[in-house]
């Protein structure tokens, strides 16, 4: 439990650039402030360079509430305005069921089973080949 906090929590989420795709991996339990900061970071990164796609890997996220759901939807909407596509990858079954029950089906969001599948979806088949295992064992 303390591990979760130190691993994620308040620390900023790194945004990696892979060719013209931004790769973001969310882990553990995010602070609201961290999620909000991430949204701004991604928008700045897209605006500052020629990025055509954003992949957000949430396979390490145990809960998505309406706040984080809204942040994800906003990232996608902002990216779209800047001509970039967003794909959310690796949502866990329990999280997906909970979001549906919550009434949050995020219709504007594209989804993929894994980061590899997301890159494929963005037309980056070559990059997909270098993708590692998508889920760390817990």
């Amino acid at each position: 439990m303390n591990d979760d906090l130190s691993r994620a929590g308040g620390a900023p989420v790194p945004v990696l650039r892979l060719g013209d795709v931004l790769l973001v991996t969310l882990q553990g339990d995010l602070h609201d402030g961290t999620a909000e900061q991430l949204r701004q970071d991604i928008v700045a990164a897209i605006a500052g360079s020629r990025v055509t796609g954003v992949v957000i890997d949430i396979s390490g996220v145990e809960i998505v509430d309406s706040f984080l759901g809204r942040v994800l939807a906003e990232i996608a909407a902002n990216a779209r305005l800047l001509a970039a596509q967003t794909v959310v990858a690796g949502m866990r079954p329990a999280v997906a069921l909970t979001l549906v029950e919550l009434g949050l089906t995020l219709p504007g969001l594209r989804t993929a089973l894994s980061t590899g599948a997301a890159l494929e979806l963005l037309g980056r088949v070559d990059a997909a080949a270098t993708d590692g295992p998508r889920r760390e064992p817990r």
Binding site: I63, L97, T98, E101
Partner: peptide, 29 residues
Amino acid sequence: LDLVWVRQHVRQAAATLGFGLVEQTKLVT
């Protein structure tokens, strides 16, 4: 930060009481 503690406490409490993974996730959310 308190929201994070709330989520973690509820997660742990639900697991202790024998809630399944999906029920835990719903309750934490």
